[in-house]
Amino acid sequence: MTTEEYSDEILMAYSDGELAPDEAARIAAKAESDPDIAARISVFRRTGEVLSMAAAERNRMAPPVESHARIRAQLARSSGNGGQVVDLQARRNRPRRSAIWSGAIAASIALAIGIGGGYWLGQQPGSGSTGPVQVTQLDPAIAEKLSSLPSGETASIPGEVSMTPVASFELASGEFCREYELIGTSGSRTVSVACNEAGNWKLRFAMDAGAASGGEYVPASSLEILDAYLSSSGASAPMSEESERAALSSLGE
């Protein structure tokens, strides 16, 4: 009965549509006349159906993975640079849990200390000087977008070209913060972090990330500084779209 010709593997491949057409036709003809063969095929068909049903339910139930939001954001803006930026990102995502990245975080903090120009803390982008850390009120148009625009979407801003929230996260202190990019009319690109204090957005970090011309994106080396800043602030992994939506809607309350 169970010859090689009608092995479990062959009948399964038939029910999965994995046989060449002529062989499938041969099995179909055999199944017509042989109820035993038909029954064996049906077991494979039924297991396939049960498993697809389980798979659909499994995917429906799966919680969003927080770290994916960050990988997504980084992949979305890394433009063929061989993965450097994602590497940095992965470190930022996992400051505590994974030893894989810790050496690299230390390296990026050392780099931040070693670099003199190109970034400043707590100052309005474009103000030029590098003073002590201070809290700075944001342009109301930018603040408004920070309270409403989901990460990954871009809005135009009066006096600037565009503004794009990159990710949302919480600091160790529990403050709700967002990283965003601002493209200026001169083609400048600023990467900033602002946190919400009792309903007001305050700038915490801003960095000149190089010209925005020609689709060139932030070089990985400059993002290391942001990376170090976020690590030292105890920033959480970026929120999922869902958590971000909830955090944004609770701002209005």
Partner: peptide
């Protein structure tokens, strides 16, 4: 394990980019 799965995904994305 979820945390290891997250690490695995990140490592795989990096390796995929390196080997693109």
């Amino acid at each position: 394990k979820h945390d290891i799965a997250e690490d695995l995904v990140q490592v795989s994305v990096i390796r995929a980019l390196e080997a693109r």
